[in-house]
């Protein structure tokens, strides 16, 4: 934590950046995001086990961008989100300074995004989290039970779109769900259209989801919606040998193809 604050002081007093996005004291269970603009605010920066939120989401918010050049304290998930955003031409070295944090609170310095890519590549294939096991468990159930399970879960959704706001990859200025000519997905906070909304959200994050699980954490109803995006991430990994957030220059798996793609699902 001391190393983090020292580094943060250095870049804010040196005038390299205008704002540092980091974690600050929140509730006993959760840390919250803070936007440090002065040395006094930098002293509020913390890092511990409660710091789970994927801060990369703020890199895309116009309110934060308006503050000027940003720095971000980045754990591994955040680093992968940054790489994915950069591969989609949303971020460049001119926009931000990345302060990497190791799990024990140590600081890794990155001179540029290229260095972030090298770091992530050197770390190798990310470990699979326990959600993959949960997905397999649900998929093994008979069709009827799966339907019941998801209907039960998704019918609670009130379409608050917290999942969308919390996701670094959902940065479209106009979302399909807000289109009403034609109305693809019913807008009221009613379970009408919930299935469609969640499938569509997952499809739009295909090949872009880095499996941070932030959508699931952000959901005020605690719905396991991160399983849907992570299911697709697992699918593209097995079918197209593809992982999001591993490289600076990469095409989306859905906008490319291989002539020998499997056709065995066509009946």
């Amino acid at each position: 934590m001391e190393a983090l604050r020292k580094k943060a002081h250095e870049i804010i007093t040196g005038g390299q950046v205008k704002v540092i996005i980091g974690y600050g004291e929140g509730s006993p269970e959760r840390a919250r995001a803070i936007f440090a603009q002065t040395p006094a605010e930098v002293d509020q920066l913390i890092f511990d086990q409660r710091c789970l939120q994927n801060l990369a989401v703020y890199l895309m918010k116009p309110e934060v961008k308006a503050l000027g050049k940003m720095a971000i304290t980045a754990s591994k998930n955040v680093l992968r989100s940054i790489l994915q955003l950069a591969s989609e031409n949303q971020l460049t070295d001119a926009d931000l300074v990345v302060i990497g944090i190791t799990d024990d609170g140590g600081v890794i310095e990155f001179p540029n995004l290229q260095a972030v890519e090298e770091h992530i590549k050197a770390a190798g294939t990310p470990a699979k989290n326990e959600d993959r096991a949960r997905i397999e468990e649900i998929d093994k159930k008979p069709l009827e039970e799966r339907w019941q399970y998801w209907q039960e879960q998704l019918s609670a959704c009130v379409k608050c779109y917290a999942c969308r706001s919390a996701c670094p990859m959902c940065y479209c200025t106009r979302c399909t769900v807000e289109c009403n000519q034609p109305q693809w997905i019913p807008a009221p906070s009613h379970h009408l259209g919930n299935l469609e909304w969640h499938i569509m959200r997952a499809m739009h994050l295909t090949g872009r989801c880095i499996e941070c699980g932030e959508c699931g954490r952000a959901c005020p109803l605690g719905l396991p919606i991160n399983l849907l995006t992570q299911k697709l991430a697992a699918e593209i990994e097995s079918q197209f040998d593809w992982q999001a957030g591993m490289s600076l220059k990469v095409e989306n798996p859905l906008s490319t193809f291989k002539p020998d793609d499997k056709e065995n699902f066509i009946k």
Binding site: A202, M203, L232
Partner: peptide
Amino acid sequence: LLKKTLRSLG
């Protein structure tokens, strides 16, 4: 991918 998603949603 859509087919896989529909399948896992029942």
